[in-house]
Simulated assay, not measured.
Amino acid sequence: MTRDGEVAVRQHGQETAVATPGLGETVLVDADGDEPTVHVPTGVAVEYHDGAGDELKTDGGRLADRTEVAAEGFGLEADETRRLAYISAVLFVATGWTASSGNAVMTGLVGLAAVVIGGLACLALRSGPA
């Protein structure tokens, strides 16, 4: 969700915003629809560029040819991911203990929880922090 004074890009259900305090309102680029849409507040000058031949200007600094940012993973810290793995291991041990007690319902519930939490831990470990 964007706030006033941001430039935001929405793509694949995720929104990335950059604070622009001088803007006062939000500029939103929505690439999720059938046709990409740019929402610009009234009172903002809009310039159209047809191709790569248009020269970009800076305030004296260096202009990067391309800047790319990708957000991947669950954004879990390494400690949180390890905790998930440890909890899953404890639940697998508890599954074995409840199986020996003869309570099939409890064994099934604890085993299911162990598999789900273990699966989440594996996904989080493979995806890394965002």
Score class of each variant (00 low, 15 high):
residue 80 E to Y: 10
residue 39 H to A: 10
residue 114 A to F: 06
residue 48 Y to G: 10
residue 9 V to W: 05
residue 98 T to C: 02
residue 51 G to H: 00
residue 126 R to Q: 12
residue 54 D to L: 01
residue 97 W to E: 10
residue 63 L to D: 06
residue 1 M to D: 14
residue 9 V to H: 07
residue 51 G to V: 00
residue 76 L to N: 10
residue 32 D to W: 00
residue 110 V to D: 00
residue 29 V to F: 09
residue 74 F to I: 03
residue 69 V to L: 11
residue 63 L to F: 02
residue 95 T to N: 05
residue 42 T to C: 04
residue 68 E to L: 09
residue 55 E to T: 15
residue 112 L to M: 14
residue 39 H to M: 09
residue 125 L to W: 12
residue 12 H to C: 05
residue 83 R to H: 12
residue 9 V to A: 13
residue 130 A to P: 00
residue 102 G to Q: 08
residue 102 G to W: 06
residue 40 V to R: 04
residue 38 V to N: 04
residue 51 G to W: 00
residue 50 D to W: 06
residue 50 D to E: 15
residue 17 A to I: 02
residue 20 T to V: 15
residue 121 A to P: 03
residue 76 L to Q: 08
residue 93 V to L: 11
residue 35 E to P: 01
residue 46 V to C: 04
residue 64 A to D: 14
residue 106 M to H: 07
residue 12 H to Q: 09
residue 99 A to S: 07
residue 58 T to H: 04
residue 56 L to T: 06
residue 118 G to R: 01
residue 117 I to M: 03
residue 26 T to A: 13
residue 63 L to R: 11
residue 71 A to T: 14
residue 11 Q to T: 13
residue 62 R to K: 15
residue 14 Q to N: 08
residue 122 C to S: 10
residue 93 V to N: 02
residue 94 A to D: 05
residue 7 V to C: 01
residue 128 G to S: 07
residue 76 L to S: 09
residue 31 A to G: 02
residue 43 G to I: 08
residue 124 A to S: 15
residue 117 I to G: 00
residue 6 E to H: 04
residue 49 H to V: 14
residue 85 A to P: 00
residue 40 V to N: 08
residue 35 E to H: 15
residue 83 R to C: 05
residue 34 D to V: 12
residue 118 G to S: 01
residue 43 G to D: 11
residue 88 S to G: 15
residue 121 A to G: 07
residue 39 H to Q: 12
residue 116 V to I: 12
residue 87 I to M: 09
residue 116 V to Y: 04
residue 121 A to Q: 04
residue 19 A to H: 10
residue 113 A to P: 01
residue 10 R to D: 09
residue 55 E to Q: 15
residue 48 Y to C: 05
residue 44 V to C: 05
residue 96 G to F: 03
residue 31 A to F: 04
residue 112 L to S: 14
residue 100 S to E: 08
residue 16 T to K: 08
residue 58 T to I: 04
residue 102 G to R: 09
residue 105 V to E: 15
residue 112 L to G: 15
residue 64 A to R: 09
residue 126 R to E: 11
residue 59 D to P: 06
residue 64 A to T: 10
residue 129 P to D: 15
residue 103 N to Y: 00
residue 6 E to A: 02
residue 98 T to E: 07
residue 61 G to T: 13
residue 100 S to D: 10
residue 48 Y to A: 12
residue 34 D to W: 08
residue 14 Q to R: 11
residue 69 V to T: 12
residue 111 G to N: 05
residue 2 T to R: 09
residue 7 V to L: 01
residue 125 L to Q: 12
residue 100 S to P: 00
residue 66 R to C: 05
residue 32 D to G: 03
residue 14 Q to F: 05
residue 51 G to M: 00
residue 91 L to A: 06
residue 85 A to T: 08
residue 59 D to I: 02
residue 72 E to N: 08
residue 12 H to M: 08
residue 5 G to K: 02
residue 5 G to C: 03
residue 99 A to T: 06
residue 38 V to T: 13
residue 111 G to M: 06
residue 30 D to Q: 00
residue 16 T to V: 14
residue 40 V to W: 04
